[in-house]
Every structure is written in C-alpha cells, then in structure tokens.
Amino acid sequence: MAVRTLLNTAVPTAYQTLITLSEQAEKAALDAGVDPLSIELVRIRASQLNGCGFCLRMHVRDALAKGESTDRIAVIPAWRETAYFSPAERAALAIAEEITNISSTAASADDGDALTVAQAAALRWVAIAINGFNRVAISSHYAVKP
C-alpha cells in the first residue's frame, strides 16, 4: 500500500476543527436526549457504508464499552430486517444512511415521531462528522492492525 500523508498531522488545525465539530455534535445529541448508544450506532453504520476499518474498530469498541450487545452490532447492516432496534434507533440508523449516501438518498430519511427536531438535527451533525473522520482515515491510509 502506498504511503500517504496523514491528514491529522499534515494540517493539525483542520483536524482539530473536525474533532471539535464531532464533540459539539455529540454534546448537542446528548443535550437533546439522544441515547449514547444511538450516537455510536450512527458512527458505526456510516463507517460500515464508507468501509472505514479504523473508525469501525474504534466505534464498535466504544459501543461495547457503553453496553451495546454483539448481537445488535452484528445485525446493524440489516437493521431494517430485525426487531433489535427501537423506533428512535431506527430513525438514527436511517439518518446515518441518508447523510452517508447523500448523493443517492437525496435527504430521504423520515424522522417520523421517533425523534424530536433537535435530536434529528444533532444526529445529522454526528453523521456529518463521522463521514469526515472516515474520509480522513481512509485517504490517509490509517493502519488497522489486530
């Protein structure tokens, strides 16, 4: 694999801005009453769709540390076909897919009654931030070693 510039160290102020964005999005989600596991579900689903091994490993570990089950993590790619997720979690997963696949979904996630406007907006910011991190990690070729 070709060596790439690590974007986090090449332009550290921009990377710090992305970290700050992620922290503010998470705080907004928590302040709006979003369950911490729903935030991790958004991060995991976006990272799955983007194929970001670095972020997947990090956020699966974070979710497990927060009490997430391996069964639920295992079925995230097929969440629509399971009964594992609450209506609010399903809305969060739909938002992750909407933001990550924005060119094909055209902002089609239906928030329904499962989320407040503040919760949906904050989760979209969480999805925007993790998509940024995915792109940094993938384009920088972050190592993912066992």
Rank of each mutant, 00 (worst) to 15 (best):
V3H: 08
L93S: 07
A78Y: 08
S140R: 11
Q48G: 09
A74E: 01
A29G: 08
A83N: 14
Q48E: 11
E89F: 13
L123P: 01
A96Y: 01
T5R: 12
Y84D: 12
A25V: 05
V117Q: 15
L6T: 11
K145L: 15
L21M: 15
V3A: 12
V136Y: 06
Q119L: 00
R124A: 13
F133C: 10
Y84T: 06
G132L: 05
S47W: 02
N101S: 12
T70W: 10
S140C: 13
A107I: 07
I39G: 10
V60W: 00
K27C: 03
N8P: 00
K66D: 10
S38K: 11
P146C: 07
G132K: 05
E97H: 08
E40L: 05
G53T: 11
G112V: 04
T9N: 10
V75P: 09
V144Y: 14
A2P: 15
L21E: 12
A143N: 12
A32W: 01
S139M: 05
K145I: 14
P77I: 05
I99P: 02
R61K: 13
A121I: 01
I128R: 01
S103V: 13
A118R: 10
E68A: 08
L7K: 12
T82K: 02
I76M: 07
A29Y: 00
E23H: 13
A120S: 11
Q24W: 08
T105W: 01
R4F: 03
T100N: 04
R4S: 14
K66H: 06
P87I: 08
A143E: 11
D71E: 15
T105D: 03
A120E: 03
